[in-house]
Structures are given as C-alpha cells and as structure tokens.
Nucleic acid binder design. Structure first.
Lengths: 275, 275
DNA sequence: CAAAATACGTAACATAAGATACAGCGCTCC
DNA sequence: GGAGCGCTGTATCTTATGTTACGTATTTTG
C-alpha cells in the first residue's frame, strides 16, 4: 500500500527516463518543499526543463501540476496535525477503549495551544479583566456548560459577570444592557446554532467585543468576533470533544485571576466571610 | 524578536480591520496550510474578498503574495528539518503563563488515567447504559457544569436522564423517584459541599448506585459510592482544574454511546427528524 | 548500420492567478 | 446632522504559470 508521494516515487523511479529521474531525486532530496514551488523553480533546481517536470508528475499519475501540489499539501497537513507523539506512542496493545480517546484528547490540546499564542491569551485575559465593562457568557447546546463553568469562576473575582441561560427570548432581551465596553464570550462548535449566530450579530452591531470559542472549522460567528479561539475537537467517538476548549477556558480563568489578584483576593476573602 | 509569521500575526492582529482579522484568524486556525494555497482559496475559506487577503499580507510587510508564500514555505522547511524545534509557540522564556498550565493539565490527565483501569470505566459505562434504571446527575458549585455537560449528551442517547439543578430543596425532593436500579452521578471536589454529602447519603440509603467524580483527596461521598473516579486537579493557578474529570466524563460518554449504538443511533436519527 | 522510437528542450500558447482601480458603505469626529 | 475618512467588495486588467506543439537529439532494435 502506497500512502504518500515519496513512496510512490521510490516505487516508480526505476521506470523513469534519466531527466525525470533527476527531477525525482531533486524532489526527494528536499522533500517535499521543492514540489510546492513553481514548475519553473522545480525545473531550474533539477537542471531539467519544465516539460520534463510536467511529464514527471504525469507519470506519477497526476492530471496536472496543481493536483500534484495539492496532494503534497494534504500530506504535509496530515503530518503537521499529528505531532511526533502520535507516531512515537505506539497504539496501546489490545486496543483498549480508553487510550485512543485519551491520546486524541491530549493531541487536541497540544495542537490547540500550538495555534494559540501567549500574547493572544494575554490580550483576551486583559479584556476580561477590564473592570470598566460587563462580561456576558453563553454557549450552545453542548457547550453551554463550559460557559457556565467559566462564569462561575469569573463571577467570584469580579462583579458584573452574567451567564445567559434559558430561553432565547430571555437572553435576547439582555442585549439592551450591552455596549462597547462589554465583552461577550460565546461557545459555539458544530453544528453551529443559528440562534447564537443571530445573537452574536446583534451584539456585534451594538459594539460588544466578542470572544469566540469554536472548533477548527470556525463558527460563522468568527465573522463578528474580536478574538477567536479555535480548539481541536476530533476524537474517536461519536461526539466531538470540548476538552481542549475547556482547558483554554481554565487557562484564561487563571490568567484573569492573576491580573485581578489584588482586588480579586480581597473579594474572595469577603465572600468567604459571608458564608 | 519575531521569528515566524504566526507571531507576526499575533503581534499585529490588534491593529487590523475586521476583515483582515478574519483572514488572520483563518490562517492561524489551520496554520500554515491555507496560506500555501491560492489567494482565491484563502479568501473563500475566510469568507472575505481576495483584495482583503492581499491587503492582509501587505500589512504583514510582504511585497506580494508569492513572497508571503515563500516565507511560509521557508518556515515549514525549517520546521521539517528539525522536528525537535517543531513547536509553533516556543515556551516563552521568563515564565510564560501558558505552558506550565498546559503541561500540568496534560500531566493530570495522564496521571488520572493511569489510576483508572479500562475495566473500571467499562463497568461504569455498562451501568450508565443499563436501560432498566434512571440516571441522575448533579455537581457542586464549580463542577455542576460537568454534570450538565454529561447529562446533555446522555439524554440524547437514552431516556430517563435527569440533571438535578436549582435549589437544594428541589433536588432533595427528587429522592422519592430514586431506587435500586437507578444511578446517581455526583461531581464533588474540594471544598466538598455539605449539601451534596447529605444528598448522597440519603440516596445511598435508598439503594441508589452512586458514581462519584472527585479529586485525589476523595470527597467524603466516596464512602457511599459504588464507583469512584479520582482526578488530579493541581495546576499552577489559584483554582483547581477540573479538566481531567472533564476528559473522563467525555470518555464515559463515548463508551456509553458505543454500548447503546444500535438504539442510540435510532434515537439520534429520530431526534434529528424532530427539528 | 539504418530506421524507428523514445526522450528532451525551445518556443509559442492559453489560462488561471495575483494586482489594481474604483465605487459604495459605514463609521467617526466635528 | 453633515463632512471626511477608512474599510471592503466588484470588476477589470496584467502578469506569470502551467500547458502544448514541434523539432532535434539520443537511444534502441532489427
């Protein structure tokens, strides 16, 4: 079974004429980068003519050069998404039901954070810690618990934190309270909910800053969002996983808490004494 | 010092107009693959026009699109050559806020699952999948969202799943509906809530099977529980982390779904058709 | 050794890609 | 409330890229 282009080349290089073989070897030598460049560059690097390059990719079974490039890109994307760990950690023997799930989840988290810079998180945390505005949180069918979780924590360290729950009409009316200084945290993963999109749009029109937690395919709400956190959700299960987003949420909670340390600590002490 | 395009984007995303920001976010979400494709594909994926994409790369400091692509390719090439340095966001020197949090969380998960046998999970899943009894879920102050999350999923694949919410008196009265065949899933981590302990005790007296999600120091409810899941919660933050428990919950959801596959699938189809 | 077939490059071509000009729209600031 | 500025998309244009046709060189084979 030939699964990537490198193998395919190794398989057929024997049947190629001299010039095409030079092309093949040049590609293998700096696989796959040169294949992502133009035909002209590829041909120059190999010291053959452009038609030879085209005949070469045709011999590999591609209809045209762009198709060949797409194939290389797909391969690359697959490699990048499964960081070393997946190939390094052998699939647990006996095919237990647990390990694949856990492994996938851990990968999702690493991958999610790989696409998330410290600066971005710091920016969001700063926004959330800004006491001049209110913070609203809402989520979709399966993600609303994440909104609740975050709200439960944030509400302790600062005032004016509201989780929008219940019927759509309920939270739609809360729009009235929202303005430029306020932040709306939305959780929305596939299948994206129309009601949330509409709500986000209206909030956006009012100048509310939207922080969106979504999956890697980006909810349409990304269109209105000031900050987008794209978490990986794929796991070997019938459901998508929100675990990566959950961890991002916890990280943010931690960051906001640190920023509000002084006043936050005071609030917490006060709350304790109220019990 | 900005060494790669991802950082560059994170640095400047704040100064970008809305549409360009969307382009930036789409690129980051599937970094860097979409940037290697054509302007047209990039623009379609981001839902903006091609000129916006060009303005976006111009703002990043590139003369033209091909130059931007070359830059991405060089970066990729460098990454591929030294897999060790593959991290997109190098651990920020000087105690970055993200990495320690993520690392601790990942450790927590590994550790949690290390103490959790496949068999134990399978047993719990079997209990939850048993259609003869009802399933109740409840959580504490910060963990109730986890109970909700689990309930939201389980309720789809089987009937008789109830999340106990609201005032203590509300759910205390539901004890009347609970019996030997039923399961009560409780989430309780420090600081353990008296109300939950009392509730668990009463349920236990009625013969209800209790599945407890708690931290490694074990809530007093463990005394009454049929199954105990002890998750690691320590992270470098002012708060404890429930992420490990969250992942266990997702794993269980997946396992139960698999067990109820036949009837579950039917239910899901039915539900879809009800929309 | 001659003839045919194959390989390869040059040069012309078509097309798809990136770049630009411009107009409409919304927003901000007087 | 009006003027100005900045953002964004449509339509157009230009360029560079992939593609093809064809002639020469090279190898193979009878």
């Amino acid at each position: 079974m030939i699964s990537n282009i490198a193998e395919l080349i190794a398989d057929r290089i024997g049947t190629m004429p001299a010039s095409e073989r030079r092309a093949a070897q040049t590609l293998i030598a700096s696989y796959p980068m040169i294949g992502l460049k133009t035909v002209a560059e590829f041909s120059a690097a190999s010291g053959v003519s452009s038609p030879t390059i085209l005949r070469f990719v045709a011999r590999l079974g591609f209809q045209n050069y762009p198709e060949f490039q797409s194939s290389l890109q797909d391969e690359l994307a697959a490699q990048l998404q499964s960081p070393a760990t997946r190939t390094l950690n052998p699939p647990s023997p006996g095919g237990g039901t647990v390990s694949p799930m856990l492994e996938a989840t851990l990968d999702n988290m690493r991958e999610t954070f790989r696409h998330l810079s410290d600066k971005q998180l710091a920016d969001i945390a700063a926004r959330l810690a800004d006491r001049r505005g209110k913070t609203f949180l809402i989520g979709g069918r399966f993600t609303d618990p994440l909104a609740r979780y975050m709200a439960a924590h944030l509400a302790i360290i600062q005032p004016d934190v509201f989780h929008l729950a219940g019927q759509e009409s309920m939270w739609r009316d809360r729009l009235i309270d929202m303005g430029k200084r306020d932040v709306l945290v939305i959780f929305d993963i596939r299948r994206y909910q129309d009601s949330l999109v509409r709500f986000a749009e209206k909030a956006h029109q009012r100048g509310v800053q939207i922080v969106l937690f979504t999956d890697q395919w980006l909810s349409p709400i990304a269109r209105f969002a000031r900050h987008v956190i794209a978490g990986r959700t794929a796991v070997p299960s019938a459901w998508d996983s929100s675990a990566a987003l959950f961890v991002v949420a916890e990280t943010l909670i931690g960051a906001v808490t640190r920023q509000l340390e002084a006043e936050g600590a005071k609030r917490i002490r006060e709350m304790e004494s109220l019990r």
